[in-house]
Design a protein around this nucleic acid. Structure first.
Length: 206
DNA sequence: TAGGCCATCTGGTCCT
DNA sequence: AGGACCAGATGGCCTA
């Protein structure tokens, strides 16, 4: 953060390679034709062209700096939105901040858990009795981008339907209440939150 | 020290 | 033309 601006200044001075115009930057960059050790005759021409090149470079640099600034603000907005998402996710105070990918994955599963809870509650309110079986977790492989994220953990989440096999009427092991995919790769507290969601559901509706 | 995460820069592409 | 979006590259910081 603090070093950002200094970085900006230095990096922008570099401007490594930008098309034909950039080949004129600096005294040793007169393009391919004349080597650095030019005779003094060409100094005049160099000067004349140098001014326009310099002004063009100033414009380019100014545009780049503005683009950098916009990009920085864009990423800050993205991070703000991510922070807001972290804010609405259940968390324990002693836990470290979720990483970006963890936040997205946890939000994905949390939404799924909430919607499953509502669905089961509605079903039970309608007809009573035992809780219906859980539906499979939303397949992250259904869309390409999410699938990449989930498969990065090494689990074959895309192929397994990940149904809950245990009898909902006797949730002896809460782990069985959630599809494996829903818990894969999460920290303990995230796992606990999701489990709590389902355990409480069985407390309320059974 | 290696690996993970992050912020930033940068050039390309698409859209308005 | 200018801005938004994206992905790759790079370097810093932190942790196991």
């Amino acid at each position: 953060m603090d070093s950002v601006f200094s970085d900006t200044d230095t990096s922008c001075d570099l401007f490594p390679h930008t098309d034909d115009e950039d080949s004129v930057r600096g005294s040793s960059m007169r393009g391919a034709s004349p080597p650095p050790d030019q005779p003094q005759q060409q100094k005049k021409r160099r000067r004349g062209r140098g001014r326009s090149d310099v002004s063009a470079q100033v414009v380019k640099k100014s545009r780049r700096l503005k683009a950098n600034d916009r990009e920085r603000n864009r990423m800050h907005n993205l991070n703000d939105a991510l922070d807001a998402l972290r804010g609405v996710l259940p968390a324990f105070p002693d836990e470290t901040k979720l990483t970006k990918i963890e936040t997205l994955r946890f939000a994905h599963n949390y939404i799924w858990a909430l919607s499953e809870t509502i669905r089961i509650a509605d079903l039970q309110a309608g007809r009573g009795g035992e809780p219906p079986p859980l539906r499979p977790a939303p397949s992250p492989a259904s869309d390409g981008s999410a699938g990449r994220c989930w498969s990065s953990g090494g689990s074959s989440s895309s192929s397994s339907p990940a149904y809950c096999a245990s009898s909902p009427g006797s949730p002896a092991a809460p782990d069985d209440l959630l599809p494996r995919d829903a818990l894969f790769g999460f920290r303990s507290f995230e796992k606990n939150v999701l489990l709590h969601l389902f355990v409480s559901q069985f407390v309320f509706y059974s």
